[in-house]
Nucleic acid binder design. Sequence first.
DNA 1: TGACAATGACTGACCAGTCAGTCATAAATG
DNA 2: CATTTATGACTGACTGGTCAGTCATTGTCA
Lengths: 235, 235
Amino acid sequence: MTNEATKTARKSPPKPANRRAGARVSASSKPPPPSNRAERAAERRGAIIEAAMDEFIARGFAATRLDDIAKRAGVAKGTIYLHFKDKESMFEELIRTAIVPLISRLWGTPPQPGASVRDMVEGFAKTFIEEVATTRRGDLVRLIVAEGPRFPEVADFYYREVVSRGLTGMRALIELGIARGEIQHKNLARFPQIMVAPALIAVIWQSLFSKHAPLDALEMFRVHLDLIFGERKTA
Amino acid sequence: MTNEATKTARKSPPKPANRRAGARVSASSKPPPPSNRAERAAERRGAIIEAAMDEFIARGFAATRLDDIAKRAGVAKGTIYLHFKDKESMFEELIRTAIVPLISRLWGTPPQPGASVRDMVEGFAKTFIEEVATTRRGDLVRLIVAEGPRFPEVADFYYREVVSRGLTGMRALIELGIARGEIQHKNLARFPQIMVAPALIAVIWQSLFSKHAPLDALEMFRVHLDLIFGERKTA
DNA sequence: TGACAATGACTGACCAGTCAGTCATAAATG
DNA sequence: CATTTATGACTGACTGGTCAGTCATTGTCA
């Protein structure tokens, strides 16, 4: 009963339900004057994103229930659909949203002008270990590795925004090191991946094996840098 | 092995149907006629494992449908339950079954007695790239990384059988290299992970980014070894 | 009050797991 | 060896539960 109503006139959708475009956020907001309504909406959206991130990281895409996300965000399930088209695009948008702070967190380190290349890389490593590998951002990376093959757009985005940029930057750093005579191995510039390999190890280890055997990721990174730059001074 | 006993009862089915029994179906085995019962059963079990591996690798645990596995294996869904308790234990058993050949594949390389440590490691790398990183076994590793957190038993097993053993062996190799004077960096023995880091990079890259930019994994590995053992002779 | 935000009960599709029934094969019998 | 009977591997329609997505209703702000 009451189901044949489905075919009956369904309200008037002259206007697309809502376009998240409005919530573009985009760094500094100035267009709309601070409205109680808009503020609350943004707040809710943030809560949903936060909750969804936790759930997706914990269970993966397929096994995550929107009911759980809603409950965790303190919102009704329908509300999610006021902000996102469906589960899939929500996931994609989520990852994209979360990657931005990941990047800025990594390249936001103060680039000391007088520092050696080794110092710069070590600073990067330190930041990475502290801000990524040991936080939820690290799980985000693992999530991308896990779901990437099923979400080519996510993998593409991650490649463009993180991998490609990161490797380019790292290559420049390596070439600077070679030019300065800090790095002897010229071939290293051909494979900047090598420089960040311990970072990936750290992320994976952290979420899979840290309970079996803790890993001092920063120290491992330093030993790795010793291979590249030569032994450190201090014993 | 060890399946549930099938009940029996007498009833009359409303519909006959069912006669595909003889149709071994396309692909693969045709010439070798079905032998005895046990052989056919083992064959079927193998087909299920094979199909399940492909499906799980392609879609992950949660998104994989048993109907698809059955179809791919050329078997009815019920047959799966003659061999496995449920989806979850099937997944676990599957991984465990598949890891064994992974190990033997890696440590099965002929340990040339007269070879240098570098040669041994390079041989290992070559085997890994050819036999794991560029094959379905590589996706298996990615699958474990992806599902590990949700299947602690799988992660534990993988740690015990692959990671722990592998690192121990690698550490021994590193210490040998240090003793022989091939390796200068004594600290490397503290982090055997560094030695295999490019292998992990290769696996991830292969399944996520190879279509964006191909990676010569073996050459990368060699450059990495140059860092550890010193530059190679040939340019 | 009118417009829009939020809700959560509901629907329909989907899917893991079941089980009554079938039939090829093995075992028993003559 | 030919025939009958017993076995259990295999099947696939079916069930019960789950969950993404919907929408009529209710709540809230301007």
